[in-house]
Design a protein around this nucleic acid. Structure first.
Lengths: 147, 147
DNA sequence: CTTGTTGCAAAGGATTTGCACGGCT
DNA sequence: AGCCGTGCAAATCCTTTGCAACAAG
């Protein structure tokens, strides 16, 4: 169930689409990386294996993955979007080191509960949320303690 | 101290810049609106008062406000950036109605504390964060209860 | 034949930048 | 004179789209 390739194939089949070699390669590289990639980065990785795959196909395939629920478009503090693999259905938030860029996925039940509460007390029915924590990771603090 | 116009003038003076009529008008409209505007929206509002003010100046002035600590660039789930006025130093998060677009500023001390805790337990020194809650506000739920 | 898919190049939208002009010190 | 600030247009970056060719059912 946590095999994204299989889930992708199922989605493709269920929707009368074709599982083309291009799509397979893009999806495979995307999930193997496991990171939050921009279309540009993913395209470069894919083209390293197969020069003939165009940028547009990468864009289209990422959108397709989003529709299939296998990826999520994320807007961090940059111009271009990043795509995050959703191997499973689990939600999580982000903890990003502003020094080295490390991006850790975190989840805290207490926070989730309080978010629900804040929304409710404002008359909102909470449907989803996004939380990004920025800080300096321990490694970076050691390397450049006082600077 | 909560007069952004004055704070802007101070920043301008402190940095050897000029408080031009264009900048004054842009800043005034921006803070009077009090909302999260895109450059395009702000530009339209400004040009309604003075056709001669160019888009580029609006872009440049918003960047300047950010440098002055009077505005903050926010990336919601859309292509273009939005700018939020920082009248005072107070931090807050966002609660957005996905039906009508209403954007409520919220703050919960309990959540803030737990964020600190989550970062620490991952070895991070927390420097800042961003949290956006998405939901349906009470008005929208009443209007279109089941649809 | 009909529909889906692709790469390319063109188009689009948002933002930045080069430039010549004008204003302030 | 010298720097700052402006509007305009061009340039850039990221993303989408039109199109002709091709593949699959």
């Amino acid at each position: 169930m946590s095999d994204p390739l299989r889930r992708f194939a199922t989605y493709i089949a269920d929707h009368g689409l074709n599982n083309t070699p291009q799509r397979r390669r893009i999806v495979e590289v995307f999930f193997k990386s496991g990171k939050h990639l921009t279309t540009e980065e993913l395209s470069a990785m894919v083209r390293a294996q197969d020069k003939s795959i165009g940028q547009a196909t990468v864009y289209r395939t990422l959108k397709l993955l989003c529709r299939a629920g296998l990826a999520k478009e994320q807007h961090f503090e940059e111009l271009s979007a990043r795509y995050e693999p959703l191997d499973n259905e689990a939600h999580h938030d982000h903890l990003i080191c502003t020094a080295c860029g490390r991006n850790v996925e975190v989840l805290d039940a207490g926070i989730e509960a309080k978010q629900e509460e804040v929304a409710r007390s404002n008359g909102f029915m909470l449907t989803s949320h996004r939380m990004i924590l920025y800080g300096i990771c321990s490694e970076c603090r050691e390397k450049r303690g006082g600077e």
